[in-house]
């Protein structure tokens, strides 16, 4: 397989965030909750991202908050992916009313607005922790992938080799595990990445409106305090810019990985034969330049 520069960039960035999730809290120069007398200071050599109204170090908050973000994203991603595979593949493989019923179920969950649903559930829970938040997000956001997987399974089921396996009397389990699932890997992977992105944004959004792990930090809690302490009105841009950029970078990394997978799944999106001077164009096939020197250069390049 050719290396895909987009996916590679994304993976490297993801690796960085994962590393920060592990070592971030130890690397943090300060305890993120610790108050100090340096109130609302702009970035300096001591406080790289400045301080809050209580003198807390924002760099440490962002660094320490990475763990919660990555953790919730990963757990919710795994939960939603497992559910979506169970529901989607079963719905696609079963014919008749059972399949239809599962498919209707995922459509229902797809149409119900996810964030408000997550908000009412999490705020009704006796306690919120990273784990419960991740579980609620995971349990409510599997529907999109289930839908995609169902469609893929439906089309795989009609392939010759699957029909043949069925005619040979192989068990449904064997067929699903060995004939169908291997062909769904890319779709499942892309669904996982998409759900992680959704989960991360949801967790941060929840924290921003005040639903978060008690006592813990994540990028959303940083923004929550920035918003509730009127950071904007006080000109404290450093309070919300780093956390927001961190979200955008993580989001971009995840999207890049997904582009790579998309291009792998849908060859039409691939830009395989890009070369300077030749623009692949539908309807007007490029004609290579006939200048012998140029032509030779292209052939050897």
């Amino acid at each position: 397989m050719r290396t895909n520069p987009k996916a590679l960039t994304g993976l490297v960035a993801l690796g960085f965030f994962a590393l920060m999730a592990v070592v971030g809290p130890w690397l943090a120069p300060f305890d993120p909750s610790e108050r100090s007398s340096a109130l609302l200071q702009p970035p300096s050599a001591e406080h790289w991202f400045g301080t809050t109204h209580l003198g807390q170090d924002i760099f440490s908050q962002v660094l320490a908050g990475t763990r919660s973000v990555v953790l919730v994203g990963a757990i919710a991603g795994v939960v939603a992916t497992v559910l979506s595979v169970l529901v989607g593949v079963t719905a696609g493989y079963l014919s008749g009313s059972a399949g239809e019923g599962l498919s209707a179920l995922s459509n229902v969950f797809l149409v119900i607005p996810a964030l408000p649903l997550i908000v009412i559930i999490t705020s009704s829970l006796p306690e919120t922790s990273n784990l419960t938040i991740a579980l609620v997000i995971g349990l409510t956001s599997w529907a999109w992938n289930a839908r995609v997987l169902r469609a893929q399974t439906l089309s795989l089921r009609r392939r010759d080799y699957v029909e043949a396996a069925r005619a040979n009397g192989e068990s449904a389990w064997r067929i699903i595990l060995f004939e169908i699932m291997p062909n769904l890997t890319a779709v499942i992977a892309s669904g996982f990445v998409g759900t992680v992105l959704f989960a991360v944004v949801s967790e941060i959004t929840l924290a921003f409106i005040g639903v978060s792990d008690a006592g813990g930090w994540n990028w959303g809690t940083v923004l929550y305090w920035a918003q509730s302490q009127q950071a904007l009105a006080q000109g404290a841009w450093w309070w919300f810019v780093p956390a927001g950029l961190a979200i955008a970078l993580l989001g971009t990394a995840l999207s890049l990985v997904n582009f790579g997978i998309d291009e792998y799944v849908n060859p039409r999106l691939r830009n395989r034969f890009s070369m300077p001077g030749v623009r692949m164009r539908v309807g007007f096939t490029p004609v290579l330049p006939q200048d012998p020197k140029l032509a030779q250069k292209l052939e050897t390049s």
Partner: peptide, 18 residues
Amino acid sequence: TTFVSSIPYFWLGLVAIA
């Protein structure tokens, strides 16, 4: 556009206000 679409809406609002 990829970068922009990864930014949460509300954060963009904060930046716009600032």
